[in-house]
């Protein structure tokens, strides 16, 4: 695969670094009880969010999952409203009503994060349909986890997309674990997404999800094909979740050797080494790291400074008239 231009390479590095530091901070805030409820981090999986988003146009559509902070940030939503949303503050992306698992930013075509497994896959087909109706060349990208390949909606969505040749790309982030259970233990085929592709007349596509440029090229090919009317693609990106499933889950169910092996394949230091070997000045990368740290600090302070939600927010936006009181 060809090397990407340096400007793109630095952008990929910046996105991965920002996402990593943002999520590390989200974890710290969770441990301080400032993020209530639960949160699911994509630490270790940043190359997929960065590589795929880099291959998309600004007006393309994105659907993601409850492990979706990374995709939303990669698509350009500023850190402060995302962090404030995690903190449940009124300056959050959705005034704190969506929370960590339900980020949505229509101004950037991010049509939601979905916490019911597979729900977003069938909905993504609708936004892909809409682009066809309007005659635009927009594509829809939807992320899913490996666990989602075993739910009915995955198969309904793939069949729909293939039947109508919709401009939609399904990106399966295979991090080897369905919540707490190894995906291989509960799946009939070794490659949970790729081995299902043929059922829908699609090519099996597997990519090293920790190689950000490989992800970028693979996504760009699928997106280009969809944009030109070539129909959907299903991409399985192999990666690893550095932490547990959610909250403070230490992920002790994973063999130590496996964790060690994958930590050594951490996509960010790996890409840093690639860039240095290509002659990128280390000071440039250090500068990106520093800016990312500062951006996360600033977002944290701005989010923490946001007001706590007013009680009225719990009762509004239920129906189109804005009201809530029909039944009370």
């Amino acid at each position: 695969m060809p090397e990407v231009p340096q400007s793109v390479a630095l952008e990929l590095y910046r996105k991965m670094t920002e996402i990593r530091l943002f999520e590390k901070r989200a974890y710290d805030l969770f441990m301080q009880n400032l993020v209530k409820g639960t949160t699911h981090l994509g630490t270790g999986q940043e190359a997929i969010a960065a590589g795929v988003s880099q291959a998309m146009n600004d007006d393309d559509y994105t659907f993601t999952t409850y492990r979706g902070h990374n995709h939303v940030l990669a698509r350009g939503t500023p850190m402060t409203p995302v962090m404030a949303e995690l903190l449940g503050r009124e300056n959050g992306l959705m005034h704190g009503k969506g929370g960590s698992m339900h980020l949505l930013d229509t101004s950037r075509g991010i049509l939601g994060a979905y916490a019911i497994i597979g729900a977003q896959l069938v909905i993504a087909n609708g936004s892909a349909f809409s682009a066809r109706y309007r005659g635009t060349r927009q594509v829809t990208v939807t992320f899913l986890g490996d666990g989602a390949t075993n739910i009915g909606a995955f198969h309904e969505a793939l069949n729909f997309a293939a039947v109508y040749k919709l401009p939609v790309i399904f990106i399966c982030e295979n991090n080897k674990y369905m919540e707490y259970t190894p995906i291989g233990a509960v799946t009939a085929v070794p490659r949970p997404a790729a081995d299902r592709a043929a059922s829908y007349g699609l090519e099996p596509v597997v990519v090293d999800g920790n190689d950000v440029e490989a992800v970028y090229h693979t996504a760009a090919a699928a997106i280009g094909k969809a944009r030109d009317g070539g129909g959907p693609s299903l991409i399985e990106a192999l990666t690893y979740r550095h932490g547990g499933h959610s909250r403070a889950d230490p992920g002790k169910y994973r063999p130590a050797e496996e964790v060690k092996e994958w930590l050594a394949k951490d996509p960010i230091p790996a890409y840093r080494a690639v860039l240095l070997s290509r002659g990128v000045d280390e000071a440039v990368l250090d500068g990106i790291d520093k800016s990312a740290r500062e951006a996360v600090d600033k977002a944290t302070e701005e989010a923490k400074a946001g007001p706590e939600p007013r009680i009225e927010l719990a009762e509004t936006n239920v129906w189109a008239d804005g009201g809530h009181a029909w039944r009370n």
Binding site: H95, K97, G99, L104, T106, N317
Partner: peptide
Amino acid sequence: RYRSRGQV
């Protein structure tokens, strides 16, 4: 509609 505080 609710979780997006009326964005959709």
